[in-house]
């Protein structure tokens, strides 16, 4: 996953020190992607080594000095090129552990695998309910925020932030849906195999 580009994108908006970067990251992507401070600092070091970011050291009286990072012109180029390039399409890796279980399905009894499929279906379905619930709350929060906002700029910002959050939840929901459809198809195939008279 492209932590590198996400951090470049955030620094492209304004310079930030490590902790502020984490906050901005959580605000934009935290719904579905958790990142620890350690990952942020190692990525920043790498970006610095590649000449994509640089930093100013700011003295603090009561604490150690902090580094405020900003994007370099090369960093801007790298980010802009990345932002508009399509992703390479490769077959999804065979990550699905359930498929491996399916490979070792017994030859005489369909019940254990059908039970497993049903349990897995429930897990995806419950996940979809949680994600959908989150969508409902984002929608409600945006509605409240819109009634309180006074300027067109504010309204536009609220709508834009809502769209981004919704899109992120959409992709998680559509993936869960694909898994559910796959499970249903497996179920039908297995039933045909075992119960065909």
């Amino acid at each position: 996953m492209s932590v590198k580009h996400a951090l470049l994108g955030i620094l492209n908006e304004s310079p930030k020190h490590g902790y502020d970067l984490k906050r901005a990251f959580d605000d934009k992507l935290g719904d579905l992607w958790s990142l620890n401070v350690g990952q942020i600092y190692t990525t920043l070091e790498r970006l610095h080594g590649e000449g994509l970011v640089e930093y100013d050291t700011v003295e603090q009286s009561d604490k150690p000095d902090k580094k405020v990072y900003r994007i370099t012109p090369t960093g801007k180029d790298v980010f802009e090129t990345w932002r508009i390039s399509p992703l390479k399409v490769e077959p999804r890796s065979l990550r699905d552990e359930l498929f491996i279980k399916l490979v070792f399905m017994g030859s005489s009894d369909a019940e254990p695998i059908l039970t497993l499929i049903q349990a897995q279906y429930s897990a995806y379905m419950a996940q979809m309910m949680v994600l959908t619930n989150r969508k409902f709350h984002i929608e409600q929060e945006a509605k409240v925020a819109l009634t309180k906002s006074t300027t067109t700029d504010d309204k536009h910002r609220i709508e834009r932030e809502k769209v981004i959050k919704m899109a992120l939840l959409d992709v998680a929901i559509f993936h869960a849906e694909a898994d559910i459809r796959w499970l249903r198809q497996c179920e039908v195939r297995i039933k045909e195999l075992y119960f065909k008279s």
């Binding site: 049903q118 429930s122 379905m125 419950a126 979809m128 309910m129 949680v130 994600l131 959908t132 619930n133 409902f136 929901i173 869960a176 849906e177 559910i180």
Partner: peptide, 24 residues
């Protein structure tokens, strides 16, 4: 399933029987 996920609870029927009640 995407529509059902808006509900508080999903009741699944199979052959006229409730086989599952699911809530997040």
């Amino acid at each position: 399933p995407k529509a059902a996920a808006y509900a508080d609870k999903i009741i699944t029927l199979s052959d006229g029987q409730i086989i599952e009640e699911l809530s997040p």
